[in-house]
């Protein structure tokens, strides 16, 4: 792209805020009662986290990432944004990474009980669906975990923060998505634009801390004197 420095984010915006938010309204209407299934999956995730059953959690997350790729990006978002095809591919890749990490390798040890992780997960489940109402849009435009990409990405970040060791390969796409969606909403001057990037920054910082901080060694019991 020549003269790239002359471009602004708004040059890449293809749709109006109204069209974007109506997309969620029509999507919610079309996929109902999938919301009940999404809520059941969220409860199943909570139970599985409590049992430290990383395999089940990873499998459920993979399902919802695949659902988002197909039902949201390809079937809906692609009607107003040609880039959604690439987003769908990234979401499928994320599902595969979750399956590989959590199911095939069984490497998702979710026993760290990170408060930040639990907070992000709870935010995605409870607060994010309420944002539409909080900023004055109809509740029918709510974005729900499992069905809409933003709460799905943030919930995934929260869950992955519960892992004993940060799984960077599984964190990368949710982190990137939070930036992409943040930029889209920022360009539309949406009041909630910073939420996803802030969640991503928090998740990134905590995962980096876990990676870089020296691991605690077991105390040497031989020197008691």
């Amino acid at each position: 792209m020549s003269e790239w420095w002359t471009y602004s984010l708004s040059d890449f915006l293809l749709f109006s805020p109204r069209t974007y938010h109506r997309l969620f309204e029509l999507y919610n209407e079309a996929v109902w009662p999938a919301h009940i299934a999404a809520a059941a999956l969220a409860i199943a995730i909570m139970v599985s986290i409590r049992r430290n059953d990383g395999r089940t959690v990873a499998a459920i997350l993979a399902i919802v990432w695949l659902w988002n790729a197909w039902a949201f990006h390809l079937d809906r978002y692609a009607t107003i944004n040609w880039a959604a095809v690439y987003f769908a591919a990234a979401f499928v890749l994320q599902a595969l990474l979750l399956l590989w990490t959590g199911v095939v390798r069984d490497a998702l040890d979710l026993s760290s009980r990170s408060r930040t992780g639990i907070t992000l997960f709870a935010f995605a489940l409870v607060i994010q669906p309420a944002i539409a109402l909080l900023v004055g849009r109809p509740w029918t435009q709510s974005e729900i975990f499992g069905l809409a990409p933003d709460p799905t990405a943030i919930a995934t970040l929260g869950i992955l923060l519960l892992a004993r060791r940060p799984q960077w390969h599984a964190l990368a796409i949710p982190l990137l998505w939070c930036i992409v969606t943040g930029l889209t909403l920022w360009t539309m001057e949406d009041p909630g634009a910073l939420l996803s990037p802030m969640a991503a920054a928090l998740a990134f910082a905590l995962a980096a801390w876990k990676t870089l901080a020296p691991s605690r060694k077991p105390r040497d019991e031989s020197h008691r004197g």
Binding site: L14, F15, S16, R18, T19, R22, L26, T79
Partner: peptide
């Protein structure tokens, strides 16, 4: 540009 990109929204 932007204005007619309403996807499958019947109202749009």
């Amino acid at each position: 540009w932007i204005t007619f990109n309403v996807g499958n929204d019947p109202a749009g």
